[in-house]
Design a protein around this nucleic acid. Structure first.
Length: 581
RNA sequence: GGUCCCGUGGUGAAGUUUGGAGUUCACGCCGGCCUGUCAAGCCGGAGGUCGCGGGUUCAAAUCCCGUCGGGACCGCCA
């Protein structure tokens, strides 16, 4: 094979006169009779036009090495749409390195090919500029993060993929043990406990670009396996961690976009929920939730005799939202758990149209419009329920109605801080931790924690030192200051209803380690797939993953998952139950 | 566990509401012509289990039921 001298997309008028050899795939062929044909040759850098004598047997996606002289094109044949459009490779001799069948879809097609077909033939899809660009962006992000973390004194430590299963958190992927039949490893949901052990081990600053696995339902922003920047710092608090993570994210962003984000504002969890109805608010657009509860303190409208009433206003939507669409939104709200959804349209002269206007007083309606800043042409949506449910439903509705396209509105990073320590109370009366049970309570709330005793409602007010990083409404990641003191850890376990025996069984190795001198430490992890997708302007993380799975967890390329044969099962001491009808 | 949307030659779409011959458009593919094209052009051609199964009907891509596959979302993701 002739040695490659240049990449297709890099040749310019500066190369005119050189004899070059380029290698790649036939992107397009244009024949003009027996003695003139243009072959567009593609590699990852782009396309270059080659002028050849006989092209009859050069078909799409053939792999060629083409040697010729770079020359300027005649003035009237310059192609401004092509980076190499001012030159061509003339007098080309062609070496066919591989022939190719016609591909199942056109690789330079500008139409969206069905994603299943793209994934089934991902090796062809990867030849597309889009996937080439996305994967190279991803590599840039990884590289920028590694460089940044290392320059800040972080040490990359690899942690095991085969670990012990713990029933907390997400569903584990498990791997059967051959040497100990009937026992199983779990694949890590994150290296959480190991990075804390690294802190006990004096690593001081740990990081890892870690693959994590969670057996939960897939979404546009969730795959079974994903990559995260996992990090942990000793003798550091939440501010230190957020500064370090902000720096890493800023470097990664700068590596891709060329400009460095400077704003990483903080917002309390309570503010986020109250104003945006979400713990991962998309602050690219307003449509904030307005407080309306007090307006209806003496209302005769039964549906609004509720602990919390809030509303949002969609500007200028009155014409766009017909009765049919409003009914669909009401149905959606009910599917999300609302008892109902009240809408008001503001017409000319402030005249209000609403199915429930007759149940509301004039002053109540006037108050709603004033609080929401509603004017002619706007549509208001009101929900009445408990605080959590009200803000949740309006938050979903806000996203449904107002969310900009992924490529719009720039990159809005946001730290959400002061998460509650407990999310809810389960049937047994035990509080449910919002993060993991090693999350340090907020320093100001330690007394509240003690005073609340086992009163679950008061416990829900206890804040934690947990924080999330949010980008344009996507949760990039979360972290916390960890508990490094045995007495506080014991207090938390007591509140969670975890017995000493249970704690020892599940986390014994970590608790043991902490007895030998644990430094105060704090950490974070953020999803690289999500960050890269947003930097690439993709709505879906599958577009930044070389070989992704479908929503039902299958891989159309390899057909995974597949049954395994009996001999393999026998060796592992496993038997597959018959599937229920 | 649930809600909604999609499935039509190799690819992308229209046709489905209101049942009437596998109909249409673009790309690709195969053959022919063509010495400056560039998503080349012109001429000709091949290519179909309308995802699958059942039902209604004289008649189903179209209506009904089921099922499979794909997607978005709720739940879930400490």
């Amino acid at each position: 094979m002739t040695n490659r001298t240049d990449y297709c997309g890099t040749l310019t008028t500066a190369d005119v006169g050189r004899s070059v050899t380029v290698c790649g795939w036939v992107s397009k062929r244009r024949e003009h009779g027996e003695h003139l044909a243009f072959v567009d040759l593609r590699d990852h850098t782009g396309i270059v036009q080659c002028v050849v004598d006989k092209a009859r047997d050069l078909r799409s996606e053939y792999v060629l090495a083409i040697t010729g002289i770079v020359r300027e094109r005649p003035d009237d044949t310059i192609n401004a749409a092509l980076a190499t459009g001012a030159i061509e490779i003339g007098d080309a001799t062609v070496e066919v390195l591989s022939v190719a069948e016609p591909p199942p879809f056109q690789i330079d097609s500008r139409v969206d090919v069905d994603e299943t077909i793209r994934i089934r033939h991902r090796y062809l899809d990867l030849r597309n500029k889009r996937m080439q660009s996305n994967l190279r962006t991803r590599a840039k992000v990884n590289s920028a993060i590694r460089n940044g973390m290392e320059s800040e004194g972080f040490v990359e430590v690899e942690t095991p993929m085969l670990i012990a299963s713990t029933p907390e958190g997400a569903r584990d992927f498990v791997v059967p043990s051959r040497l100990k039949p009937g026992s199983f490893y779990a694949l890590p949901q994150s290296p959480q406990l190991f990075k804390q052990l690294c802190m006990v081990g004096g690593i001081d600053r740990y990081f890892q670009i870690a693959r994590c696995m969670r057996d939960e339902d897939l979404r546009a922003d969730r795959q079974f396996e994903f990559s995260q920047l996992d990090m942990e710092m000793s003798f550091a608090d939440g501010d230190d961690v957020r500064a370090a993570v902000s720096e890493a994210v800023a470097l990664a962003t700068e590596a891709v976009t060329g400009s460095r984000p400077t704003e990483f504002p903080e917002m309390s969890w309570h503010d986020a929920m109250n104003r945006f109805g979400s713990d991962k608010p998309d602050v690219r657009f307003a449509m904030e939730l307005a407080e309306l509860t007090d307006l209806f303190s003496d209302t005769g409208f039964k549906a609004f005799q509720a602990p919390c009433i809030k509303g949002i206003c969609m500007k200028g939507a009155a014409d766009e939202l017909g009765r049919n669409k409003l009914d669909n939104l009401t149905d959606a709200a009910k599917r999300w758990g609302a008892k109902g959804l009240v809408w008001l349209k503001v017409g000319e002269d402030g005249e209000v149209t609403s199915p429930v206007a007759k149940f509301m007083s004039e002053s109540e309606i006037a108050g709603v419009l004033e609080r929401l800043g509603a004017e002619t042409g706007d549509v208001c949506f009101l929900v009445a329920d408990g605080w959590r449910k009200t803000v949740h439903i309006l938050g979903l509705l806000r996203i449904e109605l107002g969310r900009p396209a992924v490529t719009e509105g720039g990159l809005n990073f946001l730290w959400v801080v002061d998460f509650p320590l407990f999310e809810d109370v389960d049937e047994a009366g035990n509080p449910v931790p919002a993060h993991h049970p090693f999350t340090m309570p907020h320093a100001d709330d330690v007394e509240l924690l003690a005073a609340a005793g086992s009163d679950p409602q008061r416990l829900l007010d206890v804040r934690s030192q947990a924080y999330d990083l949010v980008l344009n409404g996507w949760e990039l990641g979360s972290g916390s200051v960890r508990i490094h003191r045995g007495d506080i850890q014991q207090q938390i376990f007591d509140l969670l209803g975890i017995s000493e025996e249970e704690a020892q069984r599940k986390f014994g190795f970590l608790l043991d380690a902490f007895r030998f001198g644990a430094p105060p430490h704090a950490g974070f992890a953020f999803g690289i797939d999500r960050l890269v997708a947003l930097l690439c302007g993709e709505e879906n993380i599958r577009e930044v993953i070389a070989f992704p799975k479908t929503q039902s967890g299958g891989d159309p390329l390899t057909n995974a998952p597949t049954p395994i044969d009996d001999a393999q099962l026998d060796e592992l001491g496993l038997r597959v139950l018959p599937q229920p009808e």
